[in-house]
């Protein structure tokens, strides 16, 4: 299960809506090993595409340097699908490389419905999990 502050989900959905019809992407960082998503980090989709996303390679290096310096890891890796359901594609699975992360998908295909779902993707296997939105995340 992913437990996450409603405010963070709102920011992720707002990012996805803003970048529609291109895919939006980013992470929510938290202390290593905590499973606590705390710091919203929207990233540029270097592909600027409605069907693909990729963090810019320079941005990726800076992001990971910053996470290391802060003692953080990507607790949530999010991206949007803009014409298809919020379910991991074959490409998403092929690229998934953070076995400890929650992969949060937002579909913006319906302007009136925010479809937000979360998955673990480990060794090519997709496991959907419940998303529990809370007003404030309890401190660990």
């Amino acid at each position: 299960m992913l437990t996450i502050a409603q405010d963070l989900v709102d920011q992720i959905v707002a990012h996805a809506r803003r970048d529609h019809p291109d895919e939006a992407c980013g992470i929510v960082a938290g202390p290593v090993g905590s499973d606590h998503p705390e710091r919203f980090v929207p990233m540029l989709n270097a592909a600027m595409s409605p069907t693909f996303y990729e963090f810019d390679s320079g941005d990726l290096l800076k992001l990971y340097r910053d996470l290391d310096a802060r003692g953080e890891e990507p607790v949530v890796v999010y991206h949007s699908h803009t014409a298809t359901p919020a379910y991991p594609s074959r490409t998403d699975v092929a690229y998934a490389s953070e076995p400890a992360a929650h992969y949060l998908l937002v579909s913006t295909r319906d302007p009136a419905v925010d479809e937000v779902r979360s998955y673990r993707i480990v060794d090519g296997e997709i496991t959907e999990e419940e998303v529990r939105c809370v007003a404030v995340l309890d401190s660990a």
Binding site: M43, F52, L61, V77, S89, T91, D92, Y95
Partner: peptide, 12 residues
């Protein structure tokens, strides 16, 4: 040298 997996994916 730093190795990092790409963070990427897509709709298909």
């Amino acid at each position: 040298v730093t190795i990092l997996p790409a963070v990427a994916g897509g709709a298909c």
